[in-house]
Amino acid sequence: MIIVTVGKPEAAATIRSALAMGADRAILVKTDTQFLDAALTAKALKAAMEKDGLPDMIFTGKGSVDTESFQTQYRLAHALGMPVVNEVSSLSADGNKAIAELEVGGGDKQVIEMNLPCVIGATKGLNEPRYPKFPDIMKAKKKKIEEMTLADLGLDASSPGVTLEKLEPVPERTGAKMIQGSVEEQVTELIRVLKEDEKVL
């Protein structure tokens, strides 16, 4: 298992955690900024993987939690010409095929079979992350993190297709509505609110 990360040098700490959880080695493509255009991220991942040797299966998250652009895995798969499935919650392999399950809402489950190599976007349930043990943490310190820059991979970050303009907190929603009165009155009022004001019933 090889960890490949595109990010600031501080990302090395996160890589160490992954190494402590069992990965064998890692590649860190260093950038100056935390928020990179998804297209460039995918290019960097592709270049780094090609340089190292392409794997049979590439795991990504379902989307980044900071910019939430949900694009990297698709762009990467497209560039590599691999099939991609996102939000996978269960996975098995059968010879040269991977069988992925994903929840599609309403309690329905989709099962997709695809050829290897492929890209899997993971979501909760795919695996129970194990907590690293102290000996593993110490071993992880000795594991190799190969570092390179975008320039080393022949990439240029100076004119990204997309830039992040602003990141600001959403204003807090106004407080909850307290319903007063006897239990009977409260229930009647609650049903009225749900039907008439919120129109959810």
Partner: peptide, 25 residues
């Protein structure tokens, strides 16, 4: 800073071996 406290953690594992087999939550 785990490096700074690793001696004590190792001491802990010597006295309580299960600590070497259990993950840090």
């Amino acid at each position: 800073d785990l490096d700074n406290i690793s001696d004590c953690i190792e001491g802990g594992i010597e006295r309580f071996p299960i600590l070497g087999e259990t993950g840090f939550k």
